[in-house]
Simulated scan of single mutants.
Amino acid sequence: MNARFPAARPRRLRRTPALRRLVAETRPRPEELILPMFVKEGLDEPNPVESMPGVVQHTRESVRKATQEAAEAGVGALMLFGVPQYKDERGSAADDPGGVLQRTLRDLDSDVGDAIVVMSDLCLDEFTSHGHCGLLTPTGEVDNDATLERYASVAVAQASAGAQVVAPSGMMDGQVAAIRAALDGAGYTQVPILSYAAKYASAFYGPFREAAEGAPRFGDRTGYQQDPANASEALREVALDVAEGADMVMVKPGLAYLDILAEVARTCPVPVSAYQVSGEYAMVEAAAQKGWLDRERAVLETITSLRRAGAAQILTYWAVEAARLLR
């Protein structure tokens, strides 16, 4: 053999689209995608979220239509966030049977059957007047243990309304154990918990706070969400949640934490999800509007990167579009 030429030619398997499909190592599937949706009380029509092109705050009716479209596209699940008309310090609307989230869950419970999994975000920030994820002490600190009692009540309210999976996102210590005990005690032993186990205090949540209307009125969430500098802490948080009974865990955000996602997926005994958060979505959309990148390729590339890093499920605002592209 002539030594001037390579013996190994990996490019042979990249020559055509058919060859590339044949040997692709990572294939995201529509049923692995989860669509986050916001439903706001008091709206007459869907309200566009300015910082997230293509995303809206839904009415109860429009969320039913959007759910049907997601199911028809092959999306595996949706994650519901409720935005109430009235808020107070304890987030009373969060477990109110007549609250917007519970009413929407009942709507969808009667609509979807087994066509798509209906998940509900379980937190208080969208429901509290101060915008924090729990009850406050007189000095303005989040009271971990008092908050657990609220989470337990919210979990039962959501399960009673038809949530097929509850997803605590507040990063309170002991939240999974408190929720599991409450669900079991109320007879909802079959309702799984998807815990936001490794949720970082990220700069990439800005557009979400517009959509969910849950920005803190003072301070920030660095006292209970994880420090972006820490990796081993995430593994400890995940292990604690699994020991407390989490059926699934989540890493949030996704793209800036692919190393965390990969390590959690390698070591965790339950399914691992990743959340492609609002800031990640908004960056791609903004750059695409400027013509600075190929939007469809960027959408699929970012989703593939999360799947390649180990996410079994991916929460993404592109879920419906991506599902159609993947099919």
Rank of each mutant, 00 (worst) to 15 (best):
L258T: 12
Y196H: 04
R308L: 08
S232H: 11
L293C: 15
A229Q: 12
A265S: 15
V238P: 00
Y275H: 09
L235I: 03
V242Y: 02
D247W: 02
A288D: 11
L240M: 12
A197M: 01
A212W: 00
L235G: 08
V299K: 10
S195I: 02
A212N: 01
K252E: 08
I314S: 02
A262S: 15
S195T: 01
T267H: 12
I260D: 10
V238M: 04
T316K: 05
T222M: 12
F208R: 05
N230F: 10
Y200P: 02
G214Q: 05
S278E: 04
A246N: 01
S278C: 07
Y281S: 06
V272D: 02
Y224K: 06
E233I: 12
A262Y: 07
A243E: 14
A298E: 13
S305I: 07
A298G: 12
V270I: 01
G219R: 08
V270D: 01
L183C: 09
L235M: 10
T267S: 13
M248R: 05
S273A: 15
L240A: 13
V264P: 01
P192W: 06
A274Q: 02
R221M: 03
E213Y: 05
F208D: 00
D241N: 06
Q289S: 15
S273W: 11
A256N: 11
G214S: 14
A298T: 15
L300W: 10
T267R: 14
G185Q: 06
A211P: 02
P253C: 11
G310D: 05
A246W: 00
T267K: 11
I260Y: 06
A231Q: 12
E285R: 14
A198Y: 04
P253Y: 11
G185F: 09
Q190A: 14
A231R: 13
E280Y: 03
E210K: 09
T304F: 08
R297T: 15
V191H: 03
R217P: 08
L306K: 04
I314A: 07
P216W: 05
G187D: 05
Y196E: 03
Q226K: 10
V249A: 01
L261H: 08
A298D: 11
D247H: 05
Y205T: 04
R236V: 15
A198M: 01
G187W: 06
K199A: 02
M250K: 06
A312M: 13
A215V: 09
A262K: 12
A274H: 02
E263R: 15
E210C: 08
G223I: 04
V270P: 00
V264E: 02
A286F: 12
P207V: 02
V238R: 04
V242L: 00
V249T: 03
L235A: 04
D294K: 15
K199M: 03
V277F: 06
D247A: 00
V284M: 14
G245D: 09
A215S: 12
K290P: 04
F204T: 11
A203N: 11
